[in-house]
Design a protein around this nucleic acid. Structure first.
Lengths: 121, 121
DNA sequence: ACCGCTGTTCACCGGTCTTTCACGGGCCTT
DNA sequence: AAGGCCCGTGAAAGACCGGTGAACAGCGGT
């Protein structure tokens, strides 16, 4: 059922990240990250969504509580802040992936994308 | 409702594709595809049609909503975009087959792109 | 009071998405 | 052979969406 309030075996491991929601703690490669409340909530919400895409409305509802009003860009701003902190902690990995028109997906992927040139025609 | 474990009754498996309509997510060989809203809608509509032929009017009605006006080439353009993305994800398979005058058929078929030495025939 | 941190909002802009146009090739009909 | 229809494909224009820096106010600690 709801995995929300179990304080003991609640730890999430995503790539080199260890997230302890009940402790308000995130370890990146063993080192603690310094996140604000919003940043932390966002990270937990994303990590708990597994490899699925989370819609911005759902993210907002879960972290801020309440419906996302049109024109509210708080999510964008905090996605950005989170990305910056994750990147400076683990420069070789990207965690937050944008799916335009759908939402965000959380999954550890190596930052260098070798783009296969698709046989230029 | 837990997003991570949800909607397994809604997932479509077609060849190496895993399509989750309710998540807005497509996995090709385990890797997430980056599709636009239209591309995704088209793929879902095709995949839901099984291996039958879907008429362009029906495709348009299902994805765009409303009747297909004469001269509208949006479907062609997006079929093409989808093909490109599917091909670069799974180069050895072809999914979208044209039946001229009838419509499109969605079915995973191996592409015989491995270069055949001219011995045959 | 001052300072640093946090959360929100604004403004700008660059990239993505969608539609439309244009051209060309294949096939069928005449 | 010529023309017409259908579809593939590249490109362009405009709308739309999200990234990003900065300003501002609130709050707690010192």
């Amino acid at each position: 059922m709801e995995a929300a309030e179990r304080a003991y075996d609640d730890v999430l491991y995503v790539g080199a990240l260890e997230i302890r929601p009940s402790d308000g703690l995130v370890l990146a490669g063993g080192r603690a990250l310094n996140l604000s409340v919003r940043e932390f909530g966002l990270l937990v919400a994303l990590a708990r969504s597994g490899d699925g895409i989370v819609r911005r409305e759902d993210l907002y509802a879960r972290v801020w509580g309440g419906p996302l009003r049109g024109g509210d860009r708080s999510i964008d701003v905090y996605i950005h802040k989170l990305r910056v902190k994750l990147e400076e902690a683990l420069p070789d990995w990207r965690f937050i992936h944008t799916h335009v028109g759908f939402g965000y997906r959380f999954s550890p992927e190596p930052s260098h994308t070798f783009h296969i040139p698709a046989t230029g025609r």
